[in-house]
Amino acid sequence: DLPPEQWSHTTVRNALKDLLKDMNQSSLAKECPLSQSMISSIVNSTYYANVSAAKCQEFGRWYKHFKKTK
């Protein structure tokens, strides 16, 4: 379990794929700090720029909290 400071584009993509087993992209976009188009691009590997470090950390913090509450 990585601390949010160490999250990267790959970590975010893997976490998104895991979350999308249980929910669809639009529900996920309402919950998490990423937009639906960004989620779609990341999981389909069409998001060519890497997600910014700040966004990765924000998502990492959100993901840890989300997993605790589920």
Rank of each mutant, 00 (worst) to 15 (best):
M23C: 06
H65A: 12
R13W: 03
K21S: 07
T11S: 07
Q25S: 14
P33G: 13
I42G: 01
S27T: 11
T11C: 04
S35P: 05
Q6E: 07
F66A: 08
N14K: 07
S26P: 11
K21Q: 13
K68I: 04
Q25D: 11
S27F: 08
T69M: 06
K70T: 05
K68L: 09
K67R: 07
S45K: 14
A29L: 08
F66K: 11
T69P: 06
N50R: 10
M38N: 07
F66M: 09
N50K: 14
T10G: 14
L20Q: 03
A15F: 03
V43E: 06
M23A: 04
S40E: 11
S26D: 10
L20A: 04
Q6G: 06
S37D: 15
K64I: 15
H65E: 12
S45W: 05
C56H: 04
S35N: 09
L16T: 01
Y63S: 00
F59S: 00
T69Q: 08
Y47R: 10
R61L: 13
L16H: 00
A53M: 13
M23N: 08
L20C: 06
K70M: 14
N50I: 02
S35M: 00
L19N: 02
H65T: 13
A29C: 09
C56D: 00
N14G: 11
I42P: 00
R13Q: 07
M38T: 09
A53F: 11
A49E: 08
K68F: 12
L16I: 10
N24A: 09
L19D: 02
I39R: 00
S40M: 09
P4E: 14
S37G: 12
S41N: 10
H65L: 13
M23R: 07
K55C: 12
Q25C: 07
E58I: 04
K67A: 04
S26L: 11
H9L: 15
L16W: 02
T10F: 11
T69H: 02
C56F: 13
D18W: 06
Y47L: 07
P33K: 04
V51D: 07
K67F: 05
S27E: 13
D18E: 14
Q36T: 10
N14L: 14
S41T: 08
K70Y: 07
D18F: 06
Y47H: 15
L16V: 14
S40A: 13
K21R: 13
L16S: 01
T46P: 11
S27L: 11
Y63G: 01
S35V: 00
P3G: 09
A29D: 08
I39S: 00
I39L: 06
H65Q: 13
W62F: 01
L20G: 03
L19G: 02
G60L: 05
E31T: 11
W7G: 03
K55Y: 05
D22I: 11
I42Y: 09
T11G: 06
N24Y: 02
S40R: 11
T11I: 08
N24W: 02
G60M: 09
K21T: 09
N14V: 06
V12T: 03
H65S: 15
S8I: 04
W62I: 06
L20R: 04
N14R: 14
D18T: 10
Y47A: 12
P3A: 10
Q6W: 11
K30T: 07
I42H: 00
S26I: 08
A53E: 08
K55M: 12
M38A: 03
N44H: 06
N50T: 07
M38F: 01
H65P: 02
A53V: 06
A29W: 06
D18H: 14
E31F: 04
C32F: 02
A54R: 13
A53H: 14
H65W: 10
T46E: 12
K67N: 15
W62L: 03
P4H: 15
K68V: 06
H9K: 12
Q6M: 15
T11V: 07
A53W: 06
W7L: 02
E31G: 05
H9R: 14
P4L: 09
W62T: 01
K67I: 12
F59I: 00
I42V: 11
N24G: 12
S37L: 10
Q6N: 08
W62A: 01
A29F: 05
A54W: 06
F59P: 01
T10A: 11
S27Q: 13
G60Q: 05
Q57N: 10
H9T: 15
A49R: 10
D18M: 09
M23Q: 10
T11E: 15
S40N: 09
W7S: 01
L28E: 03
P33H: 06
K64V: 08
D1N: 10
K55T: 14
K70S: 02
I39W: 02
